[in-house]
């Protein structure tokens, strides 16, 4: 059974019909990617799943439990957490404080310490800089912090919105390696990316979004081989 299921999702921005019946599913332990051009509805899909936008129609379930009616903070409590586009770390707070914010929904102290240690093993850079003000980190470090912050809530499903945006190529590679690592430790990942090449490289399956609709879906290998996808997203 799928862990996260989205069924016939319709979302409007005022009069604009942004998502026209999206259906997708993410199985436990998978990395699934949503690729597509600017404005195709990738971020909208993620925001709707995490409860920041309300669907007009459609169902979102996590292990069969309905998420569509829940406010965003309850969705986090259920185990779906989003790393927002553009990182959006708390720039005035230290790295450590940012990570603690991620553990906001959790009450037990010991677990937080353990997770902090785990995030620091994943991102040794952050450990070095734990008492530094987050706004002064480099772009790559900020992205690590944003991911680390999300992991602090112990999500079942991690939603990543354009993690490679604005990063140098060498850092992009590093971030994608980290995502694979996180996935191997047992976190399911739904990844939204414009960098389709890298996304399909680490994902098992993918969906191609076009103007609010799923145009194509399949295994990462199939999509990589697909002529249309190659032409539109992989540069030939």
């Amino acid at each position: 059974m799928a862990l996260l299921e989205v069924d016939n999702l319709h979302v409007y921005y005022g009069q604009i019909h942004a998502l026209k019946g999206i259906t997708l599913h993410v199985d436990p332990g998978e990395i699934v990617t949503l690729i597509g051009a600017n404005g195709a509805g990738k971020s909208t899909t993620l925001k709707t799943i995490s409860g920041l936008l309300r669907p007009q129609q459609g169902r979102i379930t996590l292990s069969g439990e309905d998420l569509a009616a829940l406010p965003a903070h309850d969705v986090v409590a259920k185990g779906v957490v989003q790393v927002p586009e553009g990182r959006r770390i708390f720039g005035q707070l230290t790295v450590h404080e940012n990570l603690l914010m991620g553990a906001y929904i959790r009450a037990e102290r010991n677990g937080v310490e353990t997770d902090l240690a785990r995030v620091f093993t994943l991102f040794p850079r952050l450990k070095e800089r734990r008492s530094q003000v987050a706004g002064t980190l480099s772009g790559g470090e900020q992205q690590m912090l944003a991911i680390g912050r999300a992991l602090m809530s112990q999500p079942k499903v991690l939603l990543l919105d354009e993690p490679s945006m604005g990063l140098a190529p060498v850092l992009v590679e590093q971030i994608f390696e980290t995502i694979t690592g996180i996935n191997r430790l047992g976190t399911t990942v739904l990844l939204v990316e414009q960098n389709a090449y890298m996304a399909l490289h680490i994902a098992q399956r993918g969906y191609v979004l076009q103007t609010g609709e799923i145009a194509l879906s399949g295994s990462a290998a199939e999509l990589q081989a697909n002529a249309e996808v190659r032409k539109a997203y992989l540069g030939g």
Binding site: S50, L52, P71, A72, H73, V76, A77, V81, Q82, P84, R88, F90, G91, Q92, L93, E97, L100, M101, G102, Y104, I105, R149, A150, S153
Partner: peptide
């Protein structure tokens, strides 16, 4: 914990919500 939540809301309300804070 409430104080930290206030700080998160002050810094970025959307992200605060996305981190599970009932804003």
């Amino acid at each position: 914990r409430l104080g930290r939540a206030w700080m998160a809301v002050r810094e970025d309300e959307d992200v605060a919500e996305a981190l599970g804070i009932n804003t």
